[in-house]
Computed example of a mutant assay.
Amino acid sequence: MGVPLKTGGLFARSLVMGLALIAASCQSSDNPTRDVPDMAKPPVVRESELRAYCPGVSLREGTSYFSTYAKGGDGDATKVIYQASLSDTTRACTYEGDNVTIKVAAAGKVVPGPAVRPGTITMPIRVAVVRGSEVLYSKLHQQQVPVSDTTAATQFMFTDADITIPMPPQRNVSIFIGFDEGAKK
């Protein structure tokens, strides 16, 4: 026992609209190459690149969040200018000769506090590449984020694409990203 279809109902109108869209997309054009998808060759990935080692990246414990206070307001919740956090991290490696170049990235968010004003804020983000206790790379970045809406969070992406190290003979290299406030005054 089937369900009768009403020709004046929502189903019929949807069917007519769908058929009209299909007919419109089948019309020919004056430019025959306009509708042809881009058939660019995909990049060739060598087997050595598939087997190559790309060190993992993570947030260093205790450095994934950062708070800034108005002058003299450290620890006072009413004096918070903003709070920032870093979350998801990723990396990509390219290989040339005996070196590996690593591009790392982290997603971040800035949440305005009671003392925020519109403008650009600067956050200290450090990237460190280590093998045991040996530091292979360390750089402090000054990440700038424009904050125009003082009532909502602002998302940002942090990227460091300038990491080049010798290809590690063992898979024992780690990459860390985190806020670095420096030595306490």
Rank of each mutant, 00 (worst) to 15 (best):
V110S: 08
K185N: 04
I163P: 09
M157A: 11
A77K: 09
G62R: 07
G108H: 06
A105F: 11
L21T: 04
L10E: 14
I22N: 00
V44L: 05
F176K: 07
G62V: 14
M167I: 11
T63F: 03
L21Q: 01
D88N: 07
M1V: 04
Q170T: 06
I165V: 03
R46Q: 09
F179G: 05
T7A: 10
V129R: 06
L59M: 03
D149V: 02
G178C: 10
T151A: 11
I125E: 05
S48L: 05
E96N: 10
V129Y: 05
T78W: 12
Q83I: 07
V127R: 08
D74I: 06
G9M: 07
V36G: 02
V116I: 15
K79F: 01
V130Y: 05
A23N: 00
G73R: 14
L136W: 08
E61N: 03
M123G: 13
V135T: 15
A107L: 15
K71A: 14
I177K: 10
S174A: 04
Y53M: 03
Q27I: 04
R91Q: 12
R13I: 10
T89M: 06
G8W: 01
Q27H: 01
K109D: 13
A84D: 11
A20E: 06
D76P: 12
V145I: 12
L59Y: 07
I163Q: 09
L10M: 06
G2S: 10
A70I: 05
V145M: 10
C54A: 03
M167S: 13
M167Y: 12
I125S: 12
V145F: 15
A77S: 15
M157R: 11
P55M: 02
E96Y: 07
E96D: 05
S14Y: 05
A115M: 13
A183C: 00
P55G: 09
T63Y: 06
K103H: 09
I22T: 00
M157D: 10
E47I: 05
C54Q: 03
G18W: 00
G2F: 04
T7H: 14
A52T: 07
Q170I: 04
